[in-house]
Simulated scan of single mutants.
Amino acid sequence: MPRGSSGKRERQYEHIKESGEKRGMSEGRAEEMAARTVNKERARSGEAKSTSRSSTQGRSSSQRGGQRSGGGSSGPTRDELYEEAKKRGIEGRSTMNKQQLKNALGH
């Protein structure tokens, strides 16, 4: 953490780091992710002395509300599709994968 960081940012850093380690990240990768995240939040809130344009544009993590970058949702889960198939009485549903359940349900 940079010198002069607030207690809030230090707690945020530790929380993000621990979360990354719990998900199986190496300690170094978890530290890097935590530092980048906290630095970006500091830049967006005006706490950092110098910032890049990319650090201050876009939606902050709190505004994203848990949305992650990448592929996004691919619709209902396999379990949700299975339950729908069960309600409709579709035979062989227990051995079907997600795509097969989608096809059987007409999704």
Rank of each mutant, 00 (worst) to 15 (best):
S50D: 08
V38M: 00
Q99R: 15
S6H: 12
G70S: 03
R88P: 01
R88M: 06
A43V: 03
E10S: 08
E47M: 08
T56D: 08
H107M: 15
E41N: 14
G75M: 05
Q100L: 05
A30D: 08
E91C: 07
L105Y: 00
E10H: 10
I90L: 04
G66L: 02
S73H: 12
G89A: 09
K102Q: 15
G75K: 01
E10K: 13
R78C: 14
S73Q: 08
S54A: 10
G58Y: 05
S62A: 14
P76K: 12
H15Y: 13
R64S: 05
Y13E: 03
Q63N: 07
S60I: 00
G24S: 09
K22H: 11
H15T: 09
S52I: 05
G24N: 04
K49E: 10
R59A: 11
M96P: 03
N39A: 12
R36S: 09
R78P: 04
Q67R: 14
M25S: 15
E83I: 01
S19H: 14
L101P: 01
N103M: 09
E83Q: 10
R3S: 13
E14F: 02
I16Q: 01
E18M: 11
E18R: 14
G106V: 07
T95N: 14
R68F: 09
I90M: 00
R64F: 00
G20P: 02
R88H: 04
I16S: 00
